[in-house]
Design a protein around this nucleic acid. Structure first.
Lengths: 340, 340
DNA sequence: AAAAATTAGGAATAGGTTTTCCTTAGGCGA
DNA sequence: TCGCCTAAGGAAAACCTATTCCTAATTTTT
């Protein structure tokens, strides 16, 4: 914990050291104005020697810009918002924009408080991210800066949200299972109150219908837990003992499903194939066998959200509505085609 | 994505609206100076009406403070650094300090780059967090601001690091197992090159020795994966078929160990007790039975690190060396005492 | 009633940088 | 030799706020 609080050189000192005026020093360092090459070099050398760094507060004050944005999350930067955040930071960092981080713990009061604070700090834009259930209330109408929702959806049509294409993800899983020759397909997923769960089920059902087949029974809505996966698999097996594949709403559920299937004597993937959702490495790799799963490309979502934000900050016409980002399928053992 | 970029009122406009000078307006809003109550009210009303918020850049410029700190992480804000980060944000946020977030992806070049950027932004302090193996190189000697390492340790004695008490955690597990009547205890853990793995093993071994007993065999160092947990359990069972408990270096390992134990016909906790490490909810709760485990109190680590940083910023004498934060034991099914 | 003290508020400065506008000196052509 | 142009760099304004120092007016004291 070094704490010299060493004095940081100002341009005034650089100018003095180089024997020029402040204005000239500024021009030399920024490549503006007309200066002799020798002078420019002298100033640069002095700045180097004194470790000069322009004070961003002064710059920002003058230019009216802060080159900062706020990142507000509801789910404590959990498993979903982190990759989003990293993707966003990537896109922003490249543009020399720094990110203020805020965790609201899903508390509207705290959220409001943070938004206030961010605005007070003159951020140039805000990214809202979080866990998704139903669309969330808008973080604030008519804020003085652009706002983009990533991995969470605003209830207001005037806002702009970037979310994964859950329907597409469900369809992806369906088509993959069909392509590997499985037609009797069950679905065990999370609570029906989650829009994501409903969309994934829809995507699955529709893709199956398109192929002229149907789901084995109704989608089994439950919890996002392994425990429910185990239960759900039992329910499914009881109703459809001849099931050939199970598409699960999350990798955790898929893991529970896999366990029960094995315990009931079904071999994976020979007897029953399993597809998860999330591509959550520790779950996917820890499963036996490793799970084929749908990846939501969270980093991509964050990147896209950040890029839109940058454009809006740059003055582009504001986007509205919802942008869905395609999912991709990650193949592993659990859906390998039976060579027989 | 609202984007009016509505003009934000300055104190000059507030002053004009209230019919006073800028200085007077400032005093009215900050409760300084001697003003008639009526004047003060008039200014406050004007500020309210115009939605005035003092520009932090101007304030910072004047006071020479930014009320910001940087948070640098190496492990992409992974499972370990996030709780630390949240704890830190908690402590800082209460002090009205905002946090700039940087992810270095464990790349020294990026790290250097970010440190530069943070210093350029005049942060008042830096917290470094990340995944721990061996102590990491110092982020920079003689930086102009205080630095605290949280959940990662600097190789330099001049720096200040806050890390969990891994030895204590191991001892905690050992004493708990002894207290529940188990004496033949095995240990399956992560790679030996991780200081954390070595410390936990030490804590376990020493606590057992203190109680006059010893470890069943040598600690089994391997990987931080479930797969290794499964293998490790087999190795352990082969060498010590009569083992009564297994302390695992992580919850993932514990989960693998549990699976193998069950498959080899051992009941948990009746025949063999299992203790994990990390208290990583999805792993712990997904295990059958749910795992007793050691919690590193990561949030606490973050909070303590932030508090030390705040003190250093406040001018307190700089701390040095390593501060360890006690772990706590979280009891669940996997070590229940056999009632027989 | 005059002097002193208090009250209310204004003017000016500082903080660090960028930019615009000026000044000075030298070079060139007529 | 005079006028004009260009090069090189200086002076000052602007950004916004907080604070210090003043001034003018009012009240209190003697």
């Amino acid at each position: 914990m070094s704490s010299e609080q060493a004095h940081v050189a100002t341009i005034r000192e650089v100018a003095a050291a180089a024997g020029v005026s402040i204005g000239t020093a500024s021009k030399a360092l920024n490549g503006r104005g007309k200066l002799r090459e020798e002078t420019r070099a002298r100033v640069t050398a002095a700045a180097e020697r004194l470790g000069f760094r322009p004070n961003p507060l002064a710059q920002g004050l003058l230019q009216g810009r802060t080159y900062t944005v706020g990142l507000v999350t509801g789910d404590s930067f959990g498993r979903f918002s982190i990759p989003v955040m990293l993707g966003a930071e990537d896109a922003l960092g490249a543009g020399q924009i720094s990110v203020f981080m805020c965790d609201t713990r899903d508390d509207p009061i705290r959220e409001q408080h943070y938004v206030e604070r961010l605005l007070a700090r003159r951020v140039e834009g805000i990214i809202v991210t979080g866990r998704r259930t139903e669309p969330r209330p808008s973080i604030g109408a008519d804020l003085p800066v652009p706002v983009v929702y990533a991995m969470t959806q605003s209830a207001s049509d005037d806002d702009f949200s970037v979310i994964p294409d859950d329907r597409g993800g469900g369809a992806l899983a369906a088509r993959h299972l069909l392509a590997t020759g499985r037609t009797r397909i069950g679905h065990v997923t999370g609570p029906e109150r989650f829009e994501a769960a409903r969309r994934r089920a829809e995507g699955l059902t529709d893709a199956l219908a398109e192929a002229g087949t149907g789901l084995a029974g109704e989608p089994l809505f439950g919890e996002w837990t392994e425990e429910w996966g185990r239960q759900g698999a039992d329910i499914l097996l009881r109703a459809h003992p001849d099931v050939e594949a199970v598409f699960c709403g999350s990798d955790q559920i898929a893991r529970g499903v896999s366990e029960t299937l094995r315990e009931r004597g079904r071999r994976i993937p020979d007897d029953v194939a399993v597809v998860g959702f999330d591509n959550w490495e520790p779950m996917v790799e820890g499963s036996r066998p490793p799970l084929t799963t749908v990846d939501m490309n969270l980093g991509e979502i964050g990147r896209i959200a950040a890029e839109h934000l940058l454009e809006a900050i740059g003055g582009a016409p504001r986007a509205r509505g919802v942008l869905t980002v395609p999912c991709s399928l990650v193949l592993r053992e659990s859906t390998r085609v039976n060579p027989a």
